[in-house]
Computed example of a mutant assay.
Amino acid sequence: MVRPTRHPVSRIAQRKGGLSSADRLVPEETPVAFSYGGTTQAVMMATPADIEDFAVGFSLSEGIIAKASDIEAIAVEDHDQGVDIQITLAETERDALTARRRYMAGPVGCGLCGVESIEQALKPVASVGPAGLHLTAGDIAQSVRLLSARQPLHAETGAVHAAGFYVPGKGVAAAREDVGRHNALDKLAGALARAGVDGRSGAVVLTSRVSIEMVQKTAIIGAPVLIAVSAPTALAIRTAEAAGITLVALVRGDEFDIFTHADRIKTGADAHVA
């Protein structure tokens, strides 16, 4: 884990006598450049951790590759001002890169900055299909609780998002953190792809709100259920409905709202994968 930076602050605490000096841990945020064949394709502001996962997940979510093995090599170059990820694609994947140019400098977690057309931003998502995953209300509450325990950087700084992959009966199989919510989900997607995990076997769990990009990335992972502690946008709901994804949001303990495909959430029954 990349260590946070300690920064001095002036703290106001009226009940403890007003102004005092203190230190606060803050997360690092740095430019991360994605370079394919020696040409920079995109620059994202991100937490400089789990870089290889980020490279694979970003490439998947951008449609540059279809699977982790489509990348032949990843070389991470640290520079004074940021990180450059040199990605070598298999020859058959280089045409996809030409068709998807994204010269950009994205703000924190910007998943659509630099997209060249509205059609690309709103491209249809593939259906996750009739996946046999079913979760109980207890699974929903447990997934959020277990993800909270897998957020060491957030515990220190209170300033980063997390994305996790919950498998019923096994818990949170993987989790990634980042200052950007889109980045955290890309890192998770990369981690799952590199490990050969079938996305249909579990649910994506987010600490953030749900926008259309988060649904699009969940569909690429193949997860049939998306769980979030915050609210979705109307477009995210419509996209999840079209993709066949069960969208659960506003999880507060054992209370939550199911926005789409509620049949996958069972009450009073054990979760199972058919």
Rank of each mutant, 00 (worst) to 15 (best):
L135K: 04
L135G: 12
L135S: 01
A137V: 05
A137C: 08
A137R: 10
G138T: 13
D139T: 15
Q142R: 05
S143N: 04
S143P: 00
V144Y: 14
V144E: 04
R145N: 03
L146F: 05
L146E: 11
L146Q: 15
L147K: 11
L147W: 02
S148D: 07
S148T: 07
S148M: 03
S148I: 13
A149W: 08
A149M: 15
R150W: 01
Q151G: 01
L153T: 00
L153G: 00
H154G: 09
A155Y: 03
A155C: 01
A155P: 00
E156G: 04
E156P: 04
E156T: 01
E156R: 08
E156H: 02
T157H: 04
T157F: 05
T157P: 14
G158K: 01
G158W: 02
A159E: 08
A159I: 02
A159H: 05
V160F: 00
V160N: 01
V160L: 01
H161F: 03
H161S: 10
H161L: 15
H161I: 00
A162V: 10
G164V: 14
G164H: 03
G164K: 05
F165I: 11
F165V: 13
Y166E: 09
V167D: 05
V167F: 08
V167P: 08
V167T: 10
P168S: 02
P168W: 02
P168C: 09
G169Y: 05
K170G: 04
K170V: 04
G171V: 07
V172R: 15
V172N: 03
V172T: 12
V172L: 12
A173T: 15
A174H: 10
R176Q: 07
E177Y: 00
E177S: 00
E177H: 00
E177A: 00
D178A: 02
D178L: 12
D178T: 08
R181G: 14
H182N: 06
N183K: 11
N183I: 07
A184I: 00
A184H: 00
D186A: 08
D186V: 02
K187N: 07
A189G: 03
G190P: 11
A191H: 04
A191C: 13
L192R: 09
A193K: 06
A193G: 01
A193N: 04
A195N: 04
G196M: 09
V197Y: 11
V197A: 15
V197H: 07
